[in-house]
Amino acid sequence: MYMKNGDYGRAIPLIERARSLAPKDKQCPPLVTISLIFGWSFNEPDIVAQQQLCETLYSEERAAEAVEILLNIIGTSDDEILRSKSTADWITDCTKKCVTTVEHVGDNASGSAALSIGPQSPAGLFIRRSKTRAANGLWEDALQDANMAVKMEPSNPLGYKTKHMALHGAKRYGEAIDAFKSMLQVIEQSNDLAIRQLRKNYISPSETIRVIDLTVRDILKNCPLVVIHVTSGCL
């Protein structure tokens, strides 16, 4: 009723209340049994409530909060729900609306850095929120968003680049190198010429190691041999 009358301020707490009534454990046997017998979905009420909350926040010009709900829907929903045409169409439409109005996105509770949204895709939103969280030192949260971006658009090198940044910030250097290698592979195998041209901006880890080895060898050629006593450590 409040939604129809345009009273979004009163609608928001009611929608949040409806969302809290959704079952927390969607895998518990009783719900699974009932779902199999009657064909009922216990995921749908939660999704609908979140969608209504997202649209209401957007209508209230609280677009940054609407984006948070949108990303939460994408991040917590199972693949079957995300593949459904109604949900996919809603996500596409909501994303397009949000990217035209939101000036910043991220975890407001931790003080997000202001940034503009470019790519009109959910993966683009995850990438930009990941960068925002990384700027605030929230490396694990940034990594979670980067992984979602990679999952949604595995052919987008920016997802892997953001993942590399998050892993490096978390001091998980081995995994960061793997993410960097994956980014280079995606760039090299892309059908988009503009993306393939990005390859010239990066040096592969193997090439970096080769250059370092050559530099070390050149230095050793001009250095006198030094014998160190392995027990005392003295020359």
Rank of each mutant, 00 (worst) to 15 (best):
Y173T: 13
I127V: 12
S116L: 05
G169R: 10
S121Q: 02
S155E: 05
R133G: 00
E175M: 13
E175W: 06
K96S: 07
F126E: 03
G75D: 06
T100F: 01
L53Q: 08
A166K: 10
G106L: 04
T95D: 09
P157T: 09
E60A: 14
N43Y: 12
C98R: 03
A166F: 04
H104D: 13
H168T: 07
I177P: 15
D79Y: 10
V150K: 01
K151V: 00
T132H: 07
T76V: 09
S84Q: 12
F126C: 01
N136V: 08
V32E: 03
S77N: 07
N108D: 10
A114D: 05
L53D: 02
S84L: 08
F42M: 07
T101L: 06
A146Y: 01
A63R: 07
R83Y: 06
K151G: 00
S59K: 15
L115N: 02
E55D: 15
A123I: 00
R62P: 01
V105T: 08
A49G: 04
S84N: 11
A63Y: 00
L36S: 09
V99L: 05
Y173V: 14
T101R: 13
E68V: 14
L115F: 01
A179S: 08
A109I: 08
P45D: 03
G169K: 03
K171V: 03
T33W: 06
G111S: 07
S112V: 07
Q51V: 12
N43H: 11
S121N: 06
I73W: 06
T132I: 02
G159F: 02
P122M: 09
R62K: 10
K85A: 09
A88P: 06
S110H: 09
S41N: 12
F126S: 03
G137I: 05
D107M: 06
G174P: 05
D145V: 00
W90F: 12
I73L: 14
M152L: 11
A166P: 06
I127S: 00
A113H: 11
D107L: 05
T100P: 00
R62I: 02
I73A: 14
L115R: 12
L82G: 05
N43L: 13
A179R: 01
A66T: 07
C98H: 03
E175A: 15
L70G: 13
A114E: 04
G137D: 01
L82K: 09
T33K: 14
S110R: 15
K163A: 00
I47V: 11
S59A: 08
I34M: 10
H168K: 14
G159I: 00
L167H: 04
D46N: 15
I34W: 04
G174N: 11
I73F: 09
M148S: 08
A135F: 02
G118T: 13
L31G: 11
I117T: 08
A66R: 11
L71F: 06
K96Y: 03
H164F: 10
H104V: 11
G124Q: 04
S121P: 04
G174K: 13
C54H: 13
N156A: 06
T76Q: 10
S116Q: 13
V48P: 01
E60F: 15
H104P: 01
E61G: 09
I34C: 13
I69V: 14
Y160R: 01
V48K: 12
I74R: 10
S35G: 15
V105K: 03
A146V: 01
L167M: 07
K151T: 01
E103A: 12
I34Y: 15
